[in-house]
Amino acid sequence: MGDVTIKNSETLSKWKHELKKIQFERTSKSGSTQSQEREVYDHGNAVAALLYNKQKGTVLLTRQFRLPAYLNDGEGMLLEACAGLVENGEEPEATMKREIKEEMGYEIEQLQKIFEVYSSPGSLKELLFLFVGEYDQQQKVADGGGLKDEGEDIEVVEMPLAEVIEKASSGQIRDAKTVILILWLQQKQLV
Rank of each mutant, 00 (worst) to 15 (best):
residue 40 V to F: 14
residue 147 L to W: 07
residue 1 M to P: 02
residue 139 Q to P: 06
residue 190 L to K: 13
residue 144 G to H: 02
residue 49 A to L: 06
residue 123 S to H: 15
residue 24 F to K: 03
residue 108 I to W: 04
residue 65 F to Q: 04
residue 76 G to V: 00
residue 169 S to T: 05
residue 184 W to S: 09
residue 165 I to C: 06
residue 11 T to Y: 01
residue 71 L to R: 03
residue 62 T to D: 08
residue 18 E to N: 00
residue 9 S to F: 05
residue 88 N to W: 06
residue 181 L to Q: 07
residue 19 L to T: 01
residue 110 Q to N: 11
residue 170 S to M: 13
residue 57 G to R: 10
residue 169 S to I: 02
residue 167 K to R: 15
residue 6 I to V: 15
residue 105 G to Q: 10
residue 76 G to L: 01
residue 2 G to I: 13
residue 123 S to N: 15
residue 179 V to P: 04
residue 139 Q to G: 08
residue 6 I to P: 12
residue 166 E to I: 05
residue 183 L to E: 14
residue 46 A to F: 02
residue 57 G to D: 08
residue 121 P to I: 12
residue 191 V to H: 00
residue 105 G to P: 06
residue 100 I to M: 09
residue 162 A to L: 11
residue 23 Q to Y: 01
residue 118 Y to K: 15
residue 164 V to K: 03
residue 81 A to M: 07
residue 163 E to V: 13
residue 95 T to L: 00
residue 81 A to T: 11
residue 36 Q to W: 05
residue 132 V to N: 03
residue 66 R to P: 00
residue 180 I to W: 04
residue 127 L to D: 06
residue 32 S to T: 09
residue 87 E to G: 04
residue 25 E to F: 03
residue 41 Y to E: 13
residue 32 S to V: 04
residue 133 G to C: 12
residue 143 D to S: 14
residue 149 D to G: 00
residue 87 E to Y: 06
residue 154 I to H: 02
residue 142 A to I: 03
residue 155 E to K: 09
residue 129 F to R: 01
residue 67 L to A: 10
residue 128 L to K: 13
residue 82 C to P: 02
residue 148 K to A: 14
residue 136 D to Q: 12
residue 160 P to T: 12
residue 25 E to I: 02
residue 107 E to C: 12
residue 77 M to N: 10
residue 178 T to P: 00
residue 111 L to P: 12
residue 136 D to W: 02
residue 59 V to D: 09
residue 89 G to I: 12
residue 179 V to H: 01
residue 141 V to E: 11
residue 89 G to P: 03
residue 25 E to W: 01
residue 68 P to N: 03
residue 105 G to N: 11
residue 63 R to L: 12
residue 47 V to T: 15
residue 141 V to F: 03
residue 72 N to Q: 13
residue 121 P to G: 12
residue 96 M to R: 09
residue 108 I to F: 07
residue 20 K to F: 05
residue 161 L to I: 13
residue 1 M to Q: 12
residue 53 N to W: 10
residue 45 N to E: 15
residue 26 R to T: 04
residue 128 L to D: 08
residue 141 V to A: 13
residue 101 K to V: 11
residue 182 I to L: 11
residue 81 A to H: 02
residue 39 E to I: 05
residue 35 S to T: 15
residue 161 L to G: 01
residue 83 A to T: 04
residue 150 E to Y: 13
residue 85 L to K: 08
residue 111 L to A: 10
residue 151 G to C: 10
residue 19 L to F: 07
residue 142 A to R: 05
residue 58 T to W: 01
residue 8 N to Y: 08
residue 187 Q to E: 15
residue 119 S to V: 15
residue 113 K to Y: 06
residue 54 K to Y: 10
residue 6 I to N: 09
residue 75 E to P: 00
residue 74 G to Q: 01
residue 49 A to R: 09
residue 42 D to M: 02
residue 69 A to P: 01
residue 168 A to H: 03
residue 6 I to Y: 11
